[in-house]
């Protein structure tokens, strides 16, 4: 899931400068779970905008705002309200914001910052486990990703900052390589420790990423 949080009010106010009427868009997927852009947050945003003298011409929570065609369809269904607005305020991740920008000529204001691809520990508590690096090494690292969970993304074992199994940047963070070592030891495997791991091939991560499933 894409973890996101609302921009602070000062930043948002600045971004909304010159807009008297906005159409509000939320997202029914990740931003709903993160409580940053679901039904409830869209409603609260409408109230907050009113206190600042910004009228809301209408709103929609798109099933998955990252779905470009669906976002376009939902905007068309609210064409009158969208046309009345000076701009569209989107409470969705960066992907969702851009689905809307693709689908409308209006000024689009993003209300969220997208943080990372996250696992849900419990509601309101998210952890980054995968950085979508394009070349997965998990089969050799006991299912623990060093690219993401090592602060330096090291591929050949812990750095000199490891202290009693903790990471040098924060005592409260486990050293990924310590976790990998302990788990492999329990499994009786040496896996990633058997060989020097070659430098990562980042060529598969050229931006912008595109992927088409062959049928």
């Amino acid at each position: 899931m894409i973890i996101s949080r609302q921009k602070n009010q000062d930043e948002l106010k600045k971004a909304l400068t010159g807009l008297a009427r906005v159409f509000l868009v939320g997202c029914g997927a990740c931003a709903t779970v993160c409580k940053s852009g679901g039904e409830e947050e869209v409603f609260r945003m409408q109230e907050w905008l009113a206190t600042g003298g910004i009228a809301v011409t209408g709103s929609v929570v798109i099933d998955e705002a990252c779905h470009i065609m669906r976002a376009g369809r939902d905007l068309r269904q609210h064409r009158v309200a969208v046309d009345e607005a000076d701009g569209i305020l989107v409470l969705a991740c960066g992907s969702g914001i851009q689905s809307i920008a693709i689908s409308s000529a209006k000024q689009v204001v993003g209300g969220l910052d997208s943080l990372f691809l996250g696992n849900v520990r419990r509601i309101g508590e998210y952890e980054e486990k995968c950085s979508l690096c394009g070349e997965c090494i998990l089969n050799e690292t006991a299912g623990i990703c060093p690219v993401t969970t090592c602060a330096k993304g090291l591929l050949n074992g812990p750095c000199g900052g490891m202290a009693e199994g903790h990471c040098e940047i924060d005592d409260g963070v486990d050293c990924a390589w310590h976790l990998i070592y302990e788990k492999l030891k329990k499994q009786g495997r040496s896996a990633v420790f058997d060989r020097p791991v070659a430098p990562k091939n980042w060529s598969g991560k050229q931006k912008p990423g595109r992927h088409k499933v062959e049928r």
Partner: peptide, 14 residues
């Protein structure tokens, strides 16, 4: 933004 395109082991190899 930290780089860490290589790690120390890979830099030795290099």
């Amino acid at each position: 933004r930290s780089v860490f395109d290589l790690d120390s082991v890979q830099l030795l190899q290099t």
